[in-house]
């Protein structure tokens, strides 16, 4: 029940910085192995977007165009897919993305207090990037970690359970 995140379009520098982390040609060899798994080229879209996002930090406008050309599918289709799935980032997303569960089991065990504590500590709303650029922190639906409720995960890296407001803040502060 947090206020919506505040969003501004990415700046030209931010886009250039992300694209500069890896050229699409750098990514191609791995992407070719992904495409080979499927009977249709377009089926590799999700795995390809994951690899692009992991390499560049987020999916830049150029990434969309390059992915569409590479998989021989329309750009609008790539855009549609990126916005459909919550884990694809189409704007700078901090160095790490943190998903804090807000769904029933976690709520029953104090998720709202955890969310409040993180918002207060970082002075943000859920969905924002922290001022130091370290984290994008968002409220998420059930993470499948209900045995660890209340819980959060750092995408691709770590999961934290049995959180208290204090331990949630401390866990993130300890990630440098």
């Amino acid at each position: 029940m947090s206020a919506p995140a505040t969003r501004t379009p990415p700046t030209a520098e931010e886009i250039a910085a992300a694209d500069g982390r890896a050229t699409f040609d750098d990514l191609r060899p791995h992407l070719d192995t992904l495409v080979a798994r499927y009977p249709a080229r377009g089926a590799a879209l999700l795995p390809v977007l994951w690899h692009v996002q992991r390499s560049r930090g987020w999916i830049t406008p150029n990434s969309v165009a390059e992915t569409a050309a590479y998989l021989e599918i329309p750009k609008a289709h790539v855009e549609g897919v990126i916005t459909f799935y919550t884990m694809f980032q189409d704007a700078p997303a901090g160095r790490e993305v943190v998903m804090v569960c807000k769904t029933l089991t976690c709520r029953l065990r104090g998720a709202q207090d955890v969310i409040d504590a993180l918002e207060d500590h970082y002075g943000i709303h859920m969905g924002d990037v922290t001022a130091d650029g370290k984290f994008k922190i968002e409220a998420a639906e059930c993470l499948g970690l209900c045995d660890m409720a209340p819980c959060m995960l750092v995408v691709d890296k770590a999961r934290y359970g049995d959180l208290t407001p204090e331990s949630a803040v401390k866990s993130l502060e300890e990630r440098s």
């Binding site: 999700l46 795995p47 998989l71 799935y85 919550t86 884990m87 694809f88």
Partner: peptide, 25 residues
Amino acid sequence: VHQGAGAYICGEETGLLSSLEGGRG
């Protein structure tokens, strides 16, 4: 192994198929 990207509806079996084919779920 095919990794989803965050959408409950991809657990519905035909949503899963749409997603596996590279589309919205």
